[in-house]
Amino acid sequence: MRASLLLLAAVAVLASGTARAETWADLPDWSGDWVVVRGKADAPPPYRPAWSARQRTSTKPVDPMSTCGLPAGAPRMMGLPGVHEWIVRPGQVWHAVEEGNSVQRVYTDGRPHRQGDDLFATYTGDNVGRWEGQTLVIDTVGLRADTWLDEAGRPHSDQTHMVARLRREGAELVARIEIEDPVAFVRPWTLERRYRKLPAGSFVHDFACKVIRSSGDAKAAN
């Protein structure tokens, strides 16, 4: 009797959408330094006609990252060169990328997306995550419209909604990403990013973009 009551209570909690707080024991080991495995090119996004033209002319022809002070943002940061780290802790996951010191924060503590005035658009968006077994599901809204979707410079609107499913497959970490954009796309765009782990003992370098882009600044810094 008591057990069934507990079961009922558990079902009620699940049904109400309250995520169970995960513990360390529930979490996969994604430690280490990961780099993107270059595979076949992404299928072209299913742009609406007006956006196809926009992609060719590109509203932002200069790479925002070349300014050395604008983040790549999501989802572009999933495919950046350099080292990626997936820092898994109960309640929150950090996706840190060497290139541009990009950090995407995914909250897995059961909080909902920010609402109203709090949901202003940012580069990495508002990322709410949940664990389905050993798969991390990241739901992203609140993205700025002036970032690139990928290294090719594809544009998107401010209505972008992204769901990424990230899990270990053998030696690789694999992210399957579905991007909805009712303004720019006729249907969701799916893409995949795969990461391989660097040998143990590797480390992440500093990223000082201004030194790469402008030797004058490097001199001025010293």
Binding site: C68, G69, L70, P71, V103, T124, G216, D217, A220
Partner: peptide, 22 residues
């Protein structure tokens, strides 16, 4: 919280000389 993204290039920019030095 929360902690936010940081876009340094959105700050007012300094003058750059002919050699690209800020």
């Amino acid at each position: 919280g929360p902690i936010f993204d940081y876009a340094c290039a959105e700050n007012p920019r300094n003058t750059i000389d002919a050699s690209g030095r800020t």
